[in-house]
């Protein structure tokens, strides 16, 4: 189903829209959510949450890309679920071991929007390959092996580049007064 058709169905409040949405992008959204929460059932629930969010916000929102919108909503739901799981000490799959230096405490959500804007600005100054590498790892949650295959480079190369990216980002955030 084309995006335009999904948008049209949403406008006339037909639930066919949600069926179309999950047919087109459901698998992708679930994989993104799964890489964050680590549990298949949790991931499926995140996708359902995302469908509901789309239903409630479109219209009046007019996303330029249904795929990006839907995936972002599913991912947000997954983060929320991850916070909940961490707070309740529920183990999921270990994702992002290289971020282990960051504390895992549940707690205030912090100013995600401001931090996101800072990261976004830093990201926009990176060359395309760096952007893709960073986003595929920390937005999509793809594994080092998957990234190596995608870019046609070795896994070690991927790790080194990611580590440099994180260093660059950390320096940028420190400059902006964000506590790491």
């Amino acid at each position: 189903m084309e995006d335009a058709e999904i948008r049209r169905l949403l406008e006339v409040r037909s639930e066919e829209a949600l069926r179309g949405l999950s047919e087109e992008y459901g698998a992708l959204a679930e994989s993104i959510a799964h890489r964050i929460v680590g549990d298949r059932r949790d991931a499926q629930e995140c996708v359902s949450d995302a469908c509901l969010a789309v239903w409630n916000t479109v219209p009046p929102a007019v996303p330029r890309s249904m795929k990006a919108y839907f995936c972002t909503l599913a991912r947000r739901a997954a983060i929320k679920r991850l916070r909940y799981n961490t707070a309740h000490k529920r183990e999921g799959a270990v994702s992002f071991p290289e971020l282990a230096f960051l504390p895992d405490r549940a707690g205030s959500a912090g100013d995600g929007a401001r931090l996101g804007a800072l990261i976004g600005r830093w990201l926009s100054r990176q060359p395309r390959r760096g952007r893709l590498l960073f986003m595929k790892r920390y937005y999509m949650g793809e594994s080092i092996a998957e990234l190596a295959g995608f870019f046609g480079i070795s896994e070690n190369n991927v790790s080194v580049r990611l580590s440099r990216l994180r260093d660059s980002l950390r320096r940028e955030l420190e400059k902006e007064g964000v506590e790491i």
Partner: peptide, 25 residues
């Protein structure tokens, strides 16, 4: 900043970056 804060913030970087990453071949 916690790990979850970081991951959450990456989701807020803006639609262009997300789209680019989803569409990359």
């Amino acid at each position: 900043m916690t790990k979850t804060d970081f991951l959450e913030a990456v989701g807020e970087v803006g639609e262009d970056a997300v789209r680019e990453c989803l569409e990359a071949a």
